[in-house]
Design a protein around this nucleic acid. Structure first.
Length: 882
RNA sequence: GGCCGGAUAGCUCAGCGGGAGAGCGAUUGCCUUACACGCAAUUGGUCGGGGGUUCAAAUCCCUCUCCGGUCACCA
């Protein structure tokens, strides 16, 4: 074979783009094979509003690892990518954009506004796709979807009409969360509560008969024009006599009754609450209980409307509050005010304070679907990793509210409902109607509202596969295997997907749900634009490479734990990749003159069997890790095997064979090294895809595509406990000599003579003898003699397990220091031995403990006894040097 | 207020019933013909406090303290 020359330095920039290009050209991301057990992931679609952040990088890295792993395991594997139209968020972006031109969306009109929005969508989509490619995502782009593409729009339409036909969709006037800035209703979950410093005012409401007044407490005096009653707790003895009497509403000429309702807390404020059904969720419910009128005092833009005295009309609620308070003070109605912190709802998109607002909206009845989703979980049809997130899921479903799905936006799926202007007939239809089925009028008007973005997202696992058509993709890949997502959207999305799948297909959409942690900065803060502490995935790729990023994230992805990182964190993956590169470079530069043999049949010595044993164990560890979604353990197994076993010991031990004059031996060694390299690349490909591919494609012993090659499986015949024991004894012997040398400040390149004396029952004697020169070079020994009769006069003794080493260090030794050190070690062993003996002498331990625990204690006893015995002997020896 | 999570080496975290681990950092020695993004060695911990269960507890139970998350109708 000819040597293969790799560039001197690991430089991911020189090959990552090229390799991704090749994967794409060869169509290697498309599902392959006829297996009956496909592996499918649908990518949580990123919003087309921005660029991917570190959270996306984590998510998609883990999905890529799963995808590549299962693909190599031979399953037909599909990772389906796509993006989300993100109704409010995207519309906000466009509105901000046109605002710079001094325009509002109304100025453009619906059609032109949407044209601009599509342009924004295209722009962001291109960026997102580029980013996913840069980080190496092996998703099948030929199946990419968008929540507003034709097929998905069709699915949305089908879902809406089906639910309507099943009487699960209704329209009505309800109090909903309304964002005055975005100008639309929001679902309950889209409201974020934040503590706000407010004021609690005590306001006098005079009795109608002029005989005095009551005092109510309120944080929102400006809504008093919508008051229709004052409520007290029915058991509140201070006020029971007042129930049924009337008070007059200040600043107006209206009179309202005092009513009793148990929701009122006696202790809070004055124990009297003004009831404003059109502007407070509690009051709304109370209004229903007492059959009260609902007086809406707000316009949709958050200003006061015609239901308030003229002086306040058209003024924003915030400003009106100041005015109202001033007027109340002037009128002598305010009797007190105090600071009051309370939770106030904010829009999750623009953070404006939410108004509870009475309006006509569309809702989905959730109760029945929620029950089915709960049952599916109880029956074990979906499993959360980590387990604890199931509480979030079940708690939300057990307290489900009907889902407000109408949004007063333009960007989204327009609600497929028409109203006949002639007869008022409502038409809900899969096809756009042309005439009213009741009166034949053609004067039909479609709903102007669009659907909540999540109304398309909740269909994602099957709409992307072609539903409602019965496509072969749907038949093959649904239900999908695993969902990888963050915990912030368990109710927004995860539980709704489960409900939709059960409702429309009668099956759960996926079995495993892996919930990732959040990516935070080193101080544990969320990465955010406002803090400026975010890390751009592309910058990481630019600085360290895509493999370094994926490997590092995976290595740190402990189940259930947030990930704290900064730019430097990625050095972990980068260093590993560099190590892989250089180890490979070294092996490939030494091929010259060697003949490639059959790695399976070439003779293997102890070290060879040992490294295959370690490789085998790594494969098993990774399999266990992947099956239980312990990504960090998988990455760690790869890292430890390649670095600590393969590079530090095996490749080092192979050097003498590579430099050997014995051509047969060199060929044998090269063959094994190349095989181990190929297997290592397979092992690490899911975790470090580009570098493994770049190397694999240059190996002379393989010619297939790494991405499609077979993942190493655990093999019984590669297990070799004896060889593993031998090598660990060698490692112990080598380390102890290196430590002694370092301890005595003997430079590594100054060789010392070493003698090893083995115990009669030492199993690795032959192995030690056969590898004498290798062990000597590992130790930095000028000579190594393995002979029980050798003269060790003047040598420093070092204890080993089953043998003793004697090192001729000459003048270097500080006998007193060595004695002190050894005394410490012996004392430690004696203490440990004492504990072990106590255990073994404990009757309860002997009767209760498992047999293997007792066995282990016994072997510990032997081990400590050996250490102490040798230690004492060595102490005596050292003492004689003085 | 309810529920959940975390508290282990200077830092970030694994381990979750049988002898305290990794990476980074620090210290020391080495440019040993793959790698100084390296090699070798060393340092470093009453596993948050208290109690209990057990032959055995960082690991299970109770309790307290401190951080974090999440849900909830206190006007």
């Amino acid at each position: 074979m000819k040597a293969v020359v790799l560039s001197k330095a690991y430089d991911p920039k020189t090959f990552e783009d090229r390799i991704y290009q090749r994967w794409m050209e060869k169509g290697l991301f498309a599902p392959e094979g006829e297996g009956s057990d496909p592996f499918t992931i649908v990518m949580p679609p990123p919003n087309v509003t921005g660029i991917l952040h570190m959270g996306h990088a984590l998510n998609n890295s883990l999905q890529d690892i799963l995808t590549r792993y299962h693909r190599m395991k031979g399953r037909p594997t599909l990772w389906l990518p796509g993006t989300d139209h993100a109704g409010i968020a995207t519309q906000n972006i466009v509105e901000r954009e046109i605002a710079k031109e001094g325009l509002r969306r109304q100025d453009l009109g619906r059609e032109r506004f949407l044209e601009r929005t599509w342009l924004v969508k295209d722009r962001h989509h291109a960026i997102i796709k580029k980013q996913l490619e840069k980080i190496g995502s092996s998703c099948d782009w030929s199946r990419e979807r968008f929540t507003m593409d034709e097929g998905l729009s069709h699915a949305v339409r089908e879902a809406f009409v089906t639910l309507y036909e099943r009487d699960l969709i209704y329209k009505g006037e309800y109090l909903v969360n309304y964002c005055p800035k975005c100008g639309t209703a929001l679902a309950d979950d889209e409201v974020e509560y934040q503590e706000v410093a407010g004021t609690l005012w005590n306001v006098r409401y005079p009795y109608s008969d002029g005989s005095g007044f009551i005092t109510v407490a309120t944080t929102r005096p400006e809504t008093m024009f919508g008051d229709v009653a004052v409520a007290v707790n029915p058991t509140d003895e201070r006020y029971t006599h007042l129930i049924g009497t009337m008070v007059s509403l200040p600043l107006t000429d209206r009179e309202i009754p005092i009513i009793a309702d148990s929701f009122v807390e006696k202790e809070f404020g004055t124990g009297m609450v003004k009831i404003t059904p059109a502007h407070d969720p509690n009051d709304y419910q109370a209004g229903i209980r007492h059959n009260l009128e609902r007086i809406n005092v707000l316009n949709s833009d958050g200003t006061l409307n015609e239901n308030v005295p003229a002086a306040y009309r058209g003024i924003s609620a915030e400003k009106a509050r100041v005015l109202v308070v001033k007027d109340l003070v002037d009128g002598g109605f305010i009797t007190g005010e105090k600071e009051h912190n309370h939770e106030v709802g904010h829009c999750y998109r623009c953070h404006t304070i939410i108004e509870p607002y009475l309006s006509n909206q569309w809702f989905v009845r959730m109760q029945g679907m929620a029950e089915k989703a709960l049952k599916a979980h109880q029956d074990g049809k979906v499993i959360f990793y980590p387990r604890r997130w199931e509480n979030t899921y079940t708690h939300w479903l057990e307290n489900i509210h009907d889902w407000c799905i109408s949004r007063q936006l333009w960007w989204g799926h327009r609600i497929p409902v028409w109203e006949c202007q002639a007869c008022g007939e409502r038409i809900v239809s899969r096809e756009d109607p042309t005439a009213c089925p009741a009166c034949n009028s053609t004067d039909l008007r479609q709903e102007t509202d669009v659907l909540d973005t999540w109304f398309s997202s909740w269909l994602w696992p099957f709409s992307t596969l072609g539903w409602p058509e019965k496509t072969s993709d749907l038949a093959t890949f649904f239900p999908t295997s695993t969902l990888v997502t963050g915990y912030d959207i368990i109710f927004f999305w995860v539980s709704r997907m489960i409900m939709a799948s059960l409702e429309f297909l009668g099956e759960v959409p996926f079995r495993d749900i892996y919930i990732t942690g959040l990516v935070r900065d080193k101080q544990g803060r969320k990465m955010s634009k406002s803090l400026g502490n975010g890390i751009d995935p592309l910058e990481v790729v630019d600085q360290y490479g895509a493999d370094a990023m994926k490997f590092t994230l995976c290595y740190m992805a402990t189940q259930g734990q947030d990930i704290l990182i900064d730019m430097d964190s990625f050095r972990l993956g980068s260093r590993f990749a560099n190590k892989v590169w250089n180890a490979t470079r070294f092996i490939l530069m030494n091929l010259e003159g060697a003949e490639l043999l059959d790695a399976e049949t070439v003779p293997r010595n102890t070290l060879d069997r040992w490294i295959y044993h370690q490789l085998n164990n790594a494969a098993r560890k990774i399999e266990q890790a992947m099956d239980s979604y312990k990504f960090n353990e998988g990455a760690q197994a790869v890292y430890d095997f390649f670095w600590n076993d393969f590079c530090d010991w095996y490749v080092e031990s192979a050097k003498r064979n590579l430099y050997s004059d014995d051509a047969a031996e060199k060929s044998r060694q090269v063959t094994l090294l190349l095989d181990l390299l190929a297997q290592s690349m397979r092992l690490m490909h899911p975790f470090a895809s580009f570098i493994s591919d770049e190397i694999y494609s240059q190996l002379p012993n393989v010619s297939d595509e790494l991405i499609m090659s077979t993942y190493p499986e655990w093999r019984d015949d590669l297990e070799s406990a004896t060889d593993a024991l031998f090598v660990s004894r060698m490692q112990e012997a080598v380390s102890s000599i290196r430590a002694l040398k370092a301890d005595l400040s003997i430079p590594a390149d100054r060789k010392v003579a070493v003698v090893i004396k083995v115990d009669d029952d030492f199993a690795a004697t032959d192995f030690f003898v056969e590898n004498q020169s290798l062990i000597a070079s590992f130790m930095g020994a000028s000579s190594l003699v393995i002979d029980d009769g050798a003269d060790t006069k003047g040598a420093v003794p070092v204890a080993g397990t089953g043998y003793e080493s004697f090192v001729f260090v000459g003048e270097a030794i500080d006998v007193k220091a060595e004695i002190a050190k050894l005394e410490g070690e012996v004392a430690k062993s004696e203490k440990a031995l004492e504990a072990v003996r106590a255990k073994l002498g404990n009757e309860k331990f002997m009767t209760n403990a498992k047999a293997e625990a007792i066995e282990k204690e016994e072997s510990k006893r032997a081990e400590f006894e050996e250490k102490i015995e040798k230690g004492k002997k060595h102490l005596a020896l050292l003492a004689s040097f003085l």
